[in-house]
Computed example of a mutant assay.
Amino acid sequence: MKTIIHATDFSENAIAALKYAHALSSKLNANLLVVHVFDYPTIFDTEVEEPVPDFEKVAYQNNKELLVEYCTKHLGNDLERMNVRTEAIENMSVTKAVIAKVVEVDAFLLVTGMKGTSAFKEFIMGNTTKQLIKKAPCPVLAIPEDATHKDINTIVYATDFEYKDLQAILTLVEIAKPYNAEIRVVHISPSEEFDPMIRLQEFEDHINDKVDYPNIIYENIPSDHTFEDLKLYLGEVNVDIIAVLKRKSKGLFKQLFHHDLVIKMESYGRLPLLSFNKTYY
């Protein structure tokens, strides 16, 4: 059974991500592991002058109870029946702790809030999400604060015709199948690109030879204004998830696919953003 991890900081901004992760794990028949990373100094509002007996045990138990209470409040009382587990983790680095857990359980997907505001110094969600997108060995799904989970009907995957797109699309198919969702593989071609339609057809033939899923559509969008026209397209097709393969600043369309696009889409903040790290594909 697959495992989806959701990392939370208990903020209002993370609630939508928790509910989204739960709905998605139910649809995919996956386990949901909700983790909260804490650091000992954040347990107290003031400096502690006297030694605290069993300090580590108390800190862990407090955070564990907070996490269970948080999940129960937003998901319901019977977490075990819903295949929801919780784990509090002590670590000064949220990114390192979450990635270590992703590796430990071989997570299929990591779900986070897109942005967050928290008094806890160790979990500033906006920055942490960026770091997880950059470093996580599994896909990272960043959920906007005002997102509400509904049936996923349309997923858009932006492609630059790379061979590693295949593995990303195979993962998208695993997400799309239970919903019978449409996957739109979209290439945005600037005016100077030579024969984008030929490249698109070759790419389509390559993917269809490897992927057994009928609901995949391939499209080319001529544009010299990549980000702006991509946003217009997303609105036109009423997309539910936008997916990208995170690349370094290389290739024909680095303005679309390098790290800055992920940051732009994150700042755009209106759609769930699914990011695949090219390093692990």
Rank of each mutant, 00 (worst) to 15 (best):
L170F: 10
L170Y: 08
N91C: 08
K177H: 13
L172W: 06
L79P: 01
I124L: 12
S25Y: 02
S25N: 02
H206C: 02
S93I: 06
T148G: 04
K248M: 05
L252K: 14
N31T: 05
V52Y: 09
N127C: 05
P214W: 06
E182Q: 15
K164G: 00
T3Q: 03
H149D: 04
F108M: 14
C71S: 03
D106V: 06
T148E: 09
A88V: 02
Y20M: 07
M265L: 15
D146N: 14
E50A: 12
V211N: 10
P144K: 03
K130F: 01
L170S: 09
L256W: 02
N277I: 07
V211E: 07
K250T: 15
A142G: 05
M265C: 11
F120Q: 08
S249A: 14
F276C: 07
D224I: 15
T95W: 02
D165N: 11
L252S: 13
L75K: 08
A16Q: 00
G235K: 14
D151C: 04
V244Q: 03
K278M: 08
L273K: 01
F123E: 01
E202T: 09
D9Q: 04
C138N: 11
A21F: 05
C71F: 00
A176D: 06
L200R: 08
N77Y: 13
L245R: 00
I263E: 12
A119W: 10
I152C: 03
M197S: 10
S267V: 11
E174Y: 01
S249W: 07
S93L: 07
N29R: 15
F161N: 03
V211S: 08
N91G: 04
D45T: 15
D160T: 06
M82W: 05
Y281L: 12
T279F: 06
E193W: 12
V237L: 10
F257I: 15
N180R: 14
V237H: 02
K210A: 14
Q255D: 15
E145Y: 06
L79N: 02
P214L: 08
L274Q: 04
V105C: 05
I133L: 07
F276A: 09
N63L: 08
R81M: 09
K27Q: 13
D151V: 07
T129Q: 03
N277G: 03
K101F: 06
D165C: 07
L33V: 11
G113W: 00
S26A: 12
P137S: 10
F253P: 00
P178V: 04
E47S: 10
H6C: 14
L67Y: 04
D160N: 13
H259W: 09
A59Q: 02
T128D: 00
N31Q: 15
M82P: 01
V185R: 02
A23E: 11
N277E: 08
F55C: 03
P51Q: 11
L109E: 01
Q201K: 15
I155E: 00
G116I: 03
L172T: 09
H187W: 11
V68P: 01
G116P: 01
D260C: 04
V173Q: 07
E56S: 12
E122M: 10
D9K: 06
I188G: 09
L28S: 06
F120M: 08
K250D: 06
E50V: 10
I4V: 13
F194R: 15
T117S: 11
C71A: 13
I175T: 10
V111N: 00
E202F: 10
V52N: 06
K254N: 09
K135C: 00
L110H: 08
V35Q: 00
K164Q: 12
N127H: 12
S25K: 01
